[in-house]
Design a protein around this nucleic acid. Structure first.
Lengths: 324, 324
DNA sequence: GTAATTTTGTCAATGTTTTGTAAAGCTTTA
DNA sequence: TAAAGCTTTACAAAACATTGACAAAATTAC
């Protein structure tokens, strides 16, 4: 770059109009009516603008396009305008449950909540964590809560656990809080009577239950009737659960990559025990580490939230038509 | 941060309507009739709202959706509204219409409930179990529920597990249901701010968490602030939990008598790690099996429900006088 | 249980404000 | 001198405000 900084660079109104996308007439109107920009003048009275002015007008243009009234935002600072735009950036699907706020707002709020929640985890403050969760559920709605708060939060906890910032207890405490919250989460979405049934657990050797919990909650919200069994269960027990509930799907979470062959062995046994009529779904940070067995046994491997939902819907549909 | 705080940001009514989900007409009606919001005005008379107003309307919208009459709640503070919504999230409506049943009636009722609940466990029907629990909590009250339903039920499950009638999965499923219920149980009894803190867990090798769960719930109901960590944790982790929360008591449940020396070793390490200022309480079916170590380490051994309550009260009193 | 009353969401009619656009007439600039 | 800019004035569509009314729903009274 040259030495041109934003103060020295100067433009006439036609240039500004082209670069900001706001018609000249309108630029003048905004100045006259609301002092949206305050250009200096040449000796002859022509307006002279800076780069900052252009940036400002660009943002104002975008904001008004988003429904904000120019009179209200005309005098906002550059930073404030940026925030305003950022808030609206994700506004793609503005309707979730009919009423309630736009998704983008809630997604934005989420970042705040994630920070607060993570801080509570780090401080090992279960009450605080629970309180934040409660507020978040109320404010964001269950869908957004799960997808944009819980999922990234748990991912982060997983990472920090690996890096050593968090200890296993942190995870246990968090699981505990979340488990007690499942009650609220579930109650918000009434289940159908003939909902397809699913077992969620983790195989022996997999002690981390956060992933499994998340899967259980997601499945519940997708209309499944989930029986959550907790972590670290032998294949026989999981299979027994499947049989007892007559579940048509079994979701396992693999969060930790182990080099022993326990998980592989358990998966094979599981497959043999539950047979071919039960779909086995596997997800979790370490799932790819076990890719070999997963392929061999023939399980559905989850890639992200959306994918899981898709799998759930497909399975539910298949299950429905089998029943009829 | 920028200067765009919740006071400065301003919106016109259409934006507010979009974000809060309340139609413009209705926003105005609520203002006119109940002063639900009190926006400022532009020079021309247009209403101008803040972020707070939007949050308010959002909550009001939700609350009215929940059956509250707008005239009653229109002037609530933001916090009150949040609480209103939060309380409803767990919506059990624990109202018994004033009519109280005698304690004896309720104890009698419990036997009925125990049978139903046990049948649900045996049938591996988590929904049914949860449903019975919910009804029982409402009908019996938390105290009776815990003492006369949950305690004997869990004892019975332990026995039947030994006899082979039940499998480990049954216990896992039951734990899962109870954990999700802790939310209701806790919410009925608000805790004091300066409540004494406690950690509840089970040591490595002790996979059964029902006893620990029960202890956690009891302690909560006795006014303790409990952090429940789940089962099967190494001494270091439990000790870390104690340190993080600054707990003055640690309750462990020992349900299964093992002949290896793991539990004994863990208990000794635990004692060394937490020091003498933290009371270690041990309960559970198999506690007596480890009597040797328990004496050596110097723990409080629980004998029944009443005894546990007594211990809790004594400790709480001691803790209180130490703090003052 | 029914009738009277109140609450509450919605709408319509009518007038005002906001806001983008544009024309007219004059001035500056290249 | 032609192009671009300035100011003033005007205009119309969209959005907003106010008032008053109405009917369904919820409460209350009988």
């Amino acid at each position: 770059m040259t030495g041109l900084n934003s103060d020295s660079a100067q433009y006439l109104i036609s240039t500004v109009s082209k670069r900001s996308g706001v018609k000249s007439d309108l630029v003048r109107a905004w100045e006259r009516r609301y002092q949206a920009v305050t250009p200096t003048r040449t000796a002859g009275g022509h307006r002279v603008y800076t780069d900052q002015d252009i940036a400002r007008l660009k943002l104002l243009n975008q904001a008004t396009g988003n429904g904000h009234s120019i009179s209200q935002i005309a005098r906002y600072s550059l930073d404030d305008l940026k925030n305003l735009i950022k808030d609206e950036a994700g506004a793609v699907i503005p309707v979730l449950n009919g009423k309630t706020t736009s998704v983008s707002d809630r997604v934005y709020l989420t970042e705040d909540y994630i920070e607060k929640c993570y801080a509570a985890v780090l401080a090992f403050d279960a009450r605080m964590l629970e309180s934040h969760f409660e507020n978040a559920i109320v404010e964001l709605g269950t869908e957004v809560f799960i997808e944009h708060l819980l999922t990234p939060l748990l991912t982060r906890i997983g990472e920090r656990w690996i890096s050593g910032e968090l200890r296993p207890v942190h995870e246990h405490m968090t699981s505990s809080v979340i488990r007690s919250l499942t009650y609220i989460l579930r109650n918000n979405n009434p289940r159908a009577a003939n909902a397809p049934r699913m077992i969620v657990s983790t195989p022996i050797g997999q002690l981390h239950e956060l992933g499994a919990l998340l899967a259980a909650i997601m499945a519940e919200l997708s209309g499944w009737q989930v029986t959550y069994l907790g972590a670290n269960l032998p294949a026989e027990e999981i299979a027994a659960g499947v049989k007892y509930t007559n579940a048509c799907a079994l979701t396992l979470s693999l969060s930790f990559a182990t080099d022993d062959h326990i998980v592989a062995k358990e998966l094979r046994r599981l497959k043999k025990l539950v047979g071919n009529n039960v779909a086995i779904i596997v997800g979790g940070r370490a799932a790819s580490h076990f890719q070999g067995v997963l392929n061999e046994v023939g399980v559905l491997n989850i890639h992200g939230y959306a994918h899981f939902r898709q799998i759930l819907n497909e399975l539910a549909a298949k299950n429905l038509e089998q029943e009829s």
